[in-house]
Design a protein around this nucleic acid. Structure first.
Length: 486
RNA sequence: GGCCCUAUCGUCUAACGGUUAGGACAGAGGCUUCUCAAGCCUUAAAUCCGGGUUCGAUUCCCGGUAGGGUCACCA
């Protein structure tokens, strides 16, 4: 069987991290099975439509490196087109496709016209709720005669509802096993709205059939409405796709992740300085675990290891500390060029034409959790911060000692060539030699030297600083420290 | 409230019905060390409760409890 999966984001203008979670599972599954990964836009609610949202979604997908096989495409010149032979992939452009299917159900008596106003429905639900019943359409319009329906259709707005039959529906969820729901629990869902647009439930069933979708991987919130779609499939005589309801992403309070509780867009995480690889690794292993003790997985590994039977059933809270830790792992693995490219947009103030900045990047990456950390950690390399001279003094020594050692080191470094600074082990050898010859403790020399070079009590090692700053800048900073001590 | 789903350290998770219930993040302590990171080592921390099936339940079944989801002309 040719596996075909689709994701169906609604155009809200950004990619919710929960959407990314679902996208990832679909993507992994499709790629592993050698199937098609399809993007279909579910924009049947005109009220929800946000201008430019589709472009933004496609851009994010590209940034994340999650290429799709079919669906809308954003061209280099900013225009939109499509690829794939099952289009159009935007539901608002498929309105005419849905109509005949609704007619078909109407003819078979499996759907009916309903003229109930919003007010009446509201009153009905209020009464049902007051009577402690589950709100459900009371089939008020089912009894209408054919003639009356035809007459009123000419003047009144109407919707088409599905007539849910007696009985119950069981479907076999690929992660949760068989699930049965009695039809007495299923509402007579509106299929066609009064504005002529289909509802999600109709559109998704028709499109999944026409686009030959074989597997539907989606969030758990869809579980209760799945019978509606299965029933529709049965009415049309179609086979249901395989459903796999994946666990929800939760807030720290275990509630479904919501916009109110901080940034929840994938784009937000990117702009906070998390790497794409981190995001894919982290979000892709929430509710899914390849069953090993490893924590770090590349996209390629996740594609290889993905297994629906290993998807968890309970919701997962995002642990931001772990995200930071993971991002740190990925940053530390970045080579010189990749690190530079990644950091650059996050540190616009830093002059990377200065080789000191490039070298500092290498040293500071072991301290960074996010790309945004570099703007601050690199700054002291490019301009010595002001500091009070007292911090030049090691806790086990005095100012006199600091001054003497700095003077001696200055002399040694002045005698060393540029090439000594270009090699950390070489420059370290020079300093260490001075320490041992004079029977000093490391702190007597390294502390004041390090503070002189960094201007801070906490920093990288003096050897790393010398390597980063180079001969000229290093000597300048030592000179500056000696002036402060004088 | 009805229905549905779920339940292992604080969090993410592992454990063909037989393990001292494992790993990771965060925490604590230590090593290293001129400081801060990084790294390494050690440590504390969990099977929701009650029944049943079984020689033996984290695991299978039932009940309870708790949490979540969902009950629109939104997806």
């Amino acid at each position: 069987m040719n596996i075909r999966v689709r994701i169906a984001p609604s155009p809200t203008g950004y990619m919710h991290i929960g959407t990314l979670h679902t996208v990832l599972f679909n993507y992994f599954f499709a790629r592993q099975q050698g199937g098609a990964f399809i993007i279909r836009i579910e924009d049947t609610d005109q009220k929800r439509f946000v201008d430019g949202a589709l472009e933004s979604l496609l851009k994010t997908l590209t940034t994340l490196g999650l290429e799709h096989d079919e669906g809308p495409v954003l061209n280099a010149d900013g225009t939109l087109s499509e690829k794939g032979s099952f289009g159009p992939y935007i539901q608002s452009k498929r309105l005419d496709i849905y109509k005949p299917y609704v007619e078909q159900l109407l003819e078979k008596g499996e759907a009916y016209v309903c003229f109930c106003t919003a007010e009446r429905l509201e009153e009905m639900r209020a009464a049902q709720t007051a009577a402690k019943q589950t709100p459900k359409y009371d089939r008020h319009c089912l009894a209408l005669s054919k003639d009356e329906v035809e007459a009123r259709k000419k003047t009144e707005p109407f919707v088409i509802r599905m007539k849910v039959p007696e009985g119950s529906t069981t479907f076999d969820d690929a992660v949760r096993g068989p699930i049965t729901i009695k039809h007495s629990e299923v509402d007579d869902q509106v299929l066609l709205k009064s504005d002529g647009f289909p509802t999600y439930h109709l559109a998704v069933v028709v499109d999944d059939h026409l686009m030959e979708i074989t597997h539907v991987l989606r969030g758990e919130e869809w579980l209760p409405s799945t019978p509606k779609q299965v029933i529709l499939c049965q009415m049309f005589g179609w086979e249901s796709p395989v459903f796999a309801h994946i666990p929800l992403l939760l807030n720290a309070d275990k509630k479904k992740l919501s916009k109110r509780q901080g940034d929840v867009a994938a784009e937000d995480f990117l702009s906070k300085g998390y790497l794409v690889d981190t995001l894919i690794n982290f979000v892709g292993t929430l509710g899914f675990n390849p069953k090993s003790d490893e924590e770090i997985y590349s996209k390629a590994q996740l594609i290889e290891l993905f297994d629906l039977s290993k998807v968890n059933r309970s919701g997962a809270v995002m642990n931001i500390e772990k995200l930071d830790w993971m991002n740190h792992q990925y940053i530390a693995k970045l080579d010189e060029q990749k690190l530079y490219e990644a950091v650059k947009p996050f540190a616009p103030e830093i002059d990377f034409t200065n080789p000191i900045a490039l070298r500092a990047l290498q040293i500071e990456k072991s301290r960074a959790n996010r790309l945004t950390d570099f703007a601050a950690s690199l700054a002291p390399y490019l301009g010595i911060p002001a500091y009070v001279p007292t911090i030049l003094v090691w806790k086990k020594a005095d100012a006199e000692d600091a001054k003497k050692n700095l003077e001696n080191i200055r002399a040694i470094l002045s005698g060393a060539g540029e090439e000594a600074f270009a090699d950390i082990t070489l420059i370290e050898g020079l300093i260490k030699e001075y320490i041992s010859t004079n029977a000093l403790q490391n702190g007597n020399v390294l502390w004041p030297l390090r503070v002189a070079l960094s201007g801070a009590e906490k920093s990288a090692s003096p050897f790393e600083l010398l390597w980063v700053l180079g001969r000229g800048e290093s000597l300048k900073r030592i000179e500056n420290a000696l002036n402060l001590l004088a």
